[in-house]
Amino acid sequence: MAKTERSSLYGEVTARIIAELEEGRLPWVQPWDAAKCPCTMPHNAVSTRNYSGINVLILWAAGLGQGFGSQRWLTYKQAEKAGGHVRRGELGTVICYADRFTPRDEAERAGNEDREARTVAFLKRFTVFNVDQCEGLPDDLTGTQAPIDPVLAVEQADAVIRNSDAEFRVGGGEAYYAPGQDFVAVPHQIAFHAGIDWYRTALHELGHWTGHSSRLNRDQTGAFRSAAYAREELVAEMASAFTCASLGIQPTVRHADYIGAWLEVLRADEKAIFRAASAASKAADYLLGSGEGEA
């Protein structure tokens, strides 16, 4: 992909997120209509693999904006291979795949010079369609998704907290992560207007916890209200949202304390939301891996 095309995609997505924030909306907090679409992560209808990083935000926004009944997506070719087709006139949603590769000539030079080969970043566009935009697909791809049992979801969230082995302190009047002492603190659940929001807050602070140098090693040295601090808050916010959606937890609150700081970060760097979403996916995966040890 040409450099200008990569820049255009970064700019397009960042502008979309900035517009949402300017309207006071957080596109990663409960971005679904529970009456129409079950609380879930967007995933490929054929492979069942969850999308990650910035694609989660893109697909959540597309699903909400067009009122789709599920978060199952597939490419034009996948729809045809499955025996169906995309309806005429339907517009797809552009998502992206980012990675790095080593050019052949660079690998050869590095070998001759006895050094590590330098990699080159690339960003590739894909167009996907929601299953609601297709016809003729088999029932196993279009059938109604059973909503996740919220009681089970809370049990799973408890398992995530317990199996993380984080030092997790409950009590007091504030929720925070102390990176120096490496512990998480949250108030008692009774302090929350809606008990389910305790889990969103707990998972937010555990999102910070994943960034410790002994775990995912993110930069957590930023002073309060600094750009670095805002970037870490952005990661923790999305990590909590991704984890909640994976567990079927539907929070009722939309925290907007840091919108101004996030806007500054995103306006200064069009790749910031891509980096934050990628880090949030890794944090959510880390936490969800902790929850697999117990039912």
Score class of each variant (00 low, 15 high):
Phe168Tyr: 14
Pro251Gly: 06
Trp262Asp: 07
Ala19Asp: 11
Cys37Arg: 13
Cys244Gly: 04
Ser52Lys: 13
Leu247Ile: 00
Leu266Ala: 02
Gly291Gln: 01
Leu216Gln: 06
Leu287Asp: 09
Lys3Pro: 00
Pro147Val: 01
Gly260Ser: 15
Gln181Met: 14
Phe122Ser: 13
Cys134Gln: 02
Ser70Lys: 12
Glu264Ala: 15
His208Gln: 06
Ala146Ile: 15
Phe224Ile: 09
Ser47Asn: 07
Met1Tyr: 09
Glu80Ala: 11
Val46Lys: 13
Ala19Trp: 03
His193Arg: 14
Pro42Asp: 10
Phe274Gly: 06
Thr127Asn: 08
Tyr199Ala: 00
Gly211Phe: 09
Leu26Pro: 00
Ala107Phe: 05
Ile196Asp: 00
Arg100Tyr: 12
Trp28Arg: 09
Ala268Pro: 07
Cys37His: 01
Ile190Ala: 14
Ala241Asp: 03
Cys39Ser: 12
Phe242Leu: 09
Gly24Gln: 09
Val94Ala: 12
Gly84His: 11
Gly53Ser: 08
Lys3Thr: 11
Ser240Cys: 10
Val184Ile: 10
Glu237Ala: 05
Ile54Lys: 08
Gly53Val: 01
Ala230Arg: 07
Cys244Leu: 05
Ala272Asn: 03
Arg231Ala: 10
Gly67Gln: 07
Glu292Met: 12
Thr252Asp: 03
Arg25Cys: 08
Gln220Thr: 07
Ala194Lys: 12
Glu113Leu: 15
Ala166His: 00
Ala245Met: 15
Asp139Thr: 10
Thr201Ile: 08
Thr142Val: 15
Glu174Gln: 13
Thr4Phe: 10
Val120Glu: 12
Arg275Cys: 02
Ala178His: 11
Ala227Ile: 10
Ala284Glu: 03
Gly289Gln: 12
Gln133Phe: 08
Pro187Ser: 09
Thr144Trp: 04
Arg6Phe: 01
Val128Thr: 12
Leu266Ile: 01
Gly11Tyr: 05
Phe242Asn: 03
Trp73Lys: 06
Ala284Ser: 15
Asp197Ser: 10
Gly83Trp: 02
Lys282Phe: 02
Val151Asn: 11
Gln156Gly: 03
Asp99His: 04
Ala283Gly: 07
Asp165Phe: 04
Ala15Val: 06
Leu263Val: 10
Val235Pro: 08
Ala202Met: 07
Gly180Met: 13
His204Ile: 05
Leu216Arg: 03
His255Ile: 05
Pro38Met: 08
Arg275Ala: 11
Gly293Arg: 14
Val170Tyr: 08
Gln78Glu: 04
Asp165Ala: 14
Val151Gly: 05
Asp140Cys: 13
